[in-house]
Design a protein around this nucleic acid. Structure first.
Length: 812
RNA sequence: GCCCGGGUGGCGAAACUGGCAGACGCAACGGACUUAAAAUCCGUUGGCCCGAAAGGGCCGUGUGGGUUCAAGCCCCACCCCGGGCACCA
């Protein structure tokens, strides 16, 4: 057969046409006849265009999915859209385009791009989170959480732009100012908002890491562990002099409490507001609104005395109460006792404001400091601490919190850095929170049979005032489900992280109208065998998904503790060392490359450029190489699929390389996914096959040709499918059996063993398979070049690693 | 500041368990084909040195030390780059 030119346009057009016509092609059988394998890639936000990060993520996932099909698994490989979110609404404000319309057209375009790449998704399972069919289950699940006390309302601060008179998302705050009013400082306003009680699951989220340790990158688990930030200490009530009121502080070092020289409140603390009247009230508001506090790196510690006095419950000492900008309202109790002698931050603060420094802990092998120049933060022995003096810090911590508990002014306590998840958004483009506010009955859940609470289409987007939903009477006005009297709908919508916290369950049963999904249908597919996505989601999305899974388990919907057995985090695609992002304007669009070289080349290139877990700087100068490789391969296979007889002298050599390549690729897939080396191995095979092309027998040529196509199939599906057909085969190539390697055929004819003298390479010997250590050593000693380096010297030692290396150590 | 990654030719990288550093590809250079160019094919390509050549020697994986017959890989100290966390009491 004469060789054919590689026409990627023609080939990719032909096969994408056939593939999209056959909806059953990438369907999971889901009948239990084969072992199942669930490959999941993080669903994209439909920003409008695919970017290289998506291409990389989905190329990795698709390559794995196709490999697992070839290994005989029943593969579930779905795709969907994280379709709610702020950009759609910003577009609506700026361009007067409805978010729904904007989103739908973006989805349509991106779906075409994905199909153009040849990604093998079961599109019948497509999920788009902005459809009522999907978000109704967000609402349903939210109600279940309310029933369990896991969803609750609490007053909380939000960013507020006085110019727009609207709430701003954190990402709409730029340098402390509004994104649309660059000179208007953002203020903090109090609002009643909805929270999910993720902290109730903090211990489980930590404990269950045991179950996934083997399959997740340890870095991600470490990041989550730090994020949860478990910390053991004590809560203690300080009295407020002249009142019955108490101020509760959290400390990990109750053993230092005799050294407390003031109490410092977070500016947001309700007690701060009560104690700061008149002139102080203005100072307090300024501190609350100060956006500089969100940038802890440059925060200068500041505070002021409230004029009030606190009483230490252990020794009755009276100390001043301050407000400090570095005290976090969101952590612990929002109030601290300052022990400047034993805490660096307190030391800095108290030094600045000339508050006394009282050392009460001495190092186990040292003296108590006098006028210390810095805080001593280590554990040690307690001094000047009344009845506790002489105890170690560890013992003091334990016994002092026992006393607090016994006498009712405190307790041992575990605090988490993790906060409850604020899910309220004062936005339109999200899932409406399904409750109604009734004057008589309070907050009333919308009954299940009235779900979904649908987003009304006819709203106005001004970017001003309250949420667009709050301005729409037809949405706002409702009757109370309990008493029937006039009531108002909740106008907050849910954080979009809710949408992405459980979508991977819905894929299994995407059309279900009675439940989020049928537990029995979901069970055999979980946990997900392989989840793949950007390391940028290491904390929020992956933590929320783990939390949501546990809640759904407690509701009885799922039977696993953890949703993802294995996680792979790909590296970022960067340009000149910078993360690609819209704001930097350095997004690279794959279309141009696909147009010029084809999807196969594009896929090979993204996999070849770097190992998948590493960051990859975008530089397409080597893309030509991938195209050349595919061209050479394509020509070779078409030329040799039906070739004339050679003398067979090259058969062994070709088969050896072929089986070595099968072994290499199989091990890359099963162990470490270094597809860059897999593709390099395919190139080496190609080079070898070209070298012995004329000396191969027809049978071996055919075998090499078709096996090569199978090995290529996971990486370059279009070319592989075309070649599979050209070589006279039928059936989709990715449903063929992955080739098995033959260790005998893969073995080199003879061993070539490097010989070193004093650790420097001096020669090589060849040895037969199965030759003994002694034979190899003798051959090495007899080698001419080696002789030249050991002549006249004394052999101290010979190291022989049979079949690998020989090192002769000489001296003199 | 703390916790992770990483640093190897002109470039992307490889070296899988301490055992031949630089596979594979890009770029570059030389050659073949061509009126010419592109494409393609063949060859060279870490640096320095000796040699007419065949060939040979020395150096070389961020820096400095160490362990070892043997170190890109292990240990100690440090420098640089990337990421995460960061007044979390």
């Amino acid at each position: 057969m004469p060789e054919k030119p590689y026409n990627h346009q023609e080939i990719e057009l032909k096969w994408s046409g056939r593939w999209s016509a056959d909806r059953s092609l990438y369907k999971a059988d889901d009948d239990g006849s084969k072992p199942r394998y669930y490959v999941l890639e993080m669903l994209p936000y439909p920003s409008g265009r695919l970017h290289m990060g998506h291409v990389r993520n989905y190329s990795i996932g698709d390559t794995l999915a196709r490999y697992q099909w070839m290994r005989g698994y029943d593969v579930l490989h779905p795709m969907g859209w994280d379709a709610f979110g702020l950009p759609a609404e910003n577009a609506a404000i700026k361009n007067k385009r409805h978010p729904a319309e904007w989103t739908v057209s973006n989805v349509a375009h991106m779906k075409k791009q994905l199909q153009r790449m040849g990604f093998a998704y079961d599109w019948d399972r497509e999920v788009s989170t902005c459809t009522p069919e999907y978000y109704r289950w967000n609402q349903w699940l939210f109600l279940r959480m309310m029933e369990r006390g896991l969803a609750y309302r609490k007053t909380s601060l939000v960013n507020w732009c006085p110019e727009c008179a609207t709430v701003l998302a954190n990402e709409q705050v730029e340098n402390g100012c509004c994104w649309r009013h660059e000179t208007t400082p953002v203020e903090q306003r109090e609002l009643d908002q909805w929270f999910l009680r993720i902290t109730a699951y903090a211990e489980q989220l930590l404990d269950d890491m045991k179950q996934i340790e083997a399959g997740w990158p340890s870095m991600v688990l470490t990041m989550q562990r730090n994020w949860i930030g478990r910390s053991e200490g004590a809560e203690v009530d300080f009295g407020l002099k002249g009142s019955e009121e108490k101020i509760r502080v959290f400390t990990t070092r109750v053993d230092t409490i005799y050294g407390a020289t003031c109490v410092i409140l977070a500016p947001e603390h309700p007690v701060s507001r009560r104690l700061c009247q008149g002139e102080l009230a203005a100072r307090l508001k300024a501190m609350v609104d100060d956006q500089g506090r969100k940038d802890p790196e440059n925060l200068v510690k500041e505070g002021f005395f409230t004029g009030h006095t606190a009483v230490n419950p252990y020794n009755g000492a009276e100390i001043p109460i301050w407000v400090g900008n570095f005290v976090l309202w969101g952590y612990g109790t929002g109030a601290i006792m300052a022990v400047p002698a034993h805490d660096e931050r307190d030391f800095e603060f108290c030094t600045k404001y000339s508050i006394p420094i009282v050392p009460v802990i001495r190092p186990a092998d040292g003296e108590l400091a006098v006028n210390p120049a810095e805080a001593f933060t280590g554990y040690g022995v307690m001094e000047n601490s009344g009845e506790w003096s002489g105890l170690t810090s560890e013992e003091g911590r334990r016994r002092m919190s026992e006393k607090a508990e016994r006498e009712g002014f405190g307790k041992a306590s575990i605090t988490y850095r993790l906060k409850d998840w604020g899910v309220s958004r004062q936005r339109y483009w999200g899932t409406p929170i399904p409750v109604v506010h009734c004057k008589a009955c309070g907050v009333v859940p919308v009954p299940d049979d009235q779900l979904p609470v649908v987003l009304p289409p006819d709203v106005e987007f001004t970017g001003r005032g309250k949420s667009p939903l709050a301005n729409l009477k037809s949405f706002l006005n409702a009757s109370c489900p309990k008493c029937g009297s006039a009531a108002q709908r909740e106008t907050d919508t849910m954080d979009t992280f809710v949408d992405s916290s459980w979508y991977f369950f819905r894929y299994v049963d995407p059309q279900n109208t009675a439940l989020p999904f049928d537990p029995a249908a979901v069970k055999p597919w979980f946990p997900v065998d392989q989840y793949i996505g950007g390391v940028t989601h290491a904390i929020l999305h992956l933590l929320y998904s783990r939390f949501w899974c546990k809640v759904m388990r407690d509701i009885g919907l799922v039977s696993v503790d953890e949703p993802f057995k294995n996680l792979f985090t790909q590296g970022m695609v960067q340009l000149n060392g910078q993360t690609m992002s819209k704001s930097k304007g350095n997004i690279v669009d794959p279309d141009e490359m696909v147009e010029k070289y084809g999807a196969d080349t594009c896929r090979l290139f993204t996999l070849f450029a770097a190992p998948p877990e590493k960051n990859m700087d975008w530089n397409e100068s080597s893309v030509e190489g991938q195209y050349r490789f595919l061209t050479r391969l394509y020509k070779w296979v078409t030329r040799n699929a039906d070739a004339s007889e050679g003398d067979g002298a090259g058969d062994a050599r070709a088969l050896r390389k072929l089986h070595q390549t099968i072994r290499k690729l199989t091990s890359d897939f099963d162990n470490r996914w270094h597809f860059n080396t897999s593709i390099a191995a395919l190139m080496e095979l190609m080079n070898e096959l070209q070298a012995c092309e004329t000396s191969m027998s027809a049978a071996v040529r055919r075998e090499c040709a078709s096996t090569l196509v199978l090995l290529l199939a996971p990486f370059a599906p279009f070319a592989a499918e075309e070649l599979w057909e050209v070589t006279g085969h039928t059936g989709p190539v990715f449903k063929q059996r992955w080739p098995a390697f033959d260790a005998d055929l893969a073995r080199e004819e003879a061993l070539e063993i490097p010989v070193q003298v004093n650790g420097k390479l001096r020669g090589r010997i060849t040895a037969a398979h199965g030759s003994t250590r002694e034979e190899q050593e003798q051959a090495a000693l007899g080698d001419e070049k080696v002789q030249a380096h050991i002549a006249g010297k004394q052999i101290v030692k010979t190291v022989v690693i049979p079949g690998k290396l020989i090192n002769i150590v000489v001296k003199g």
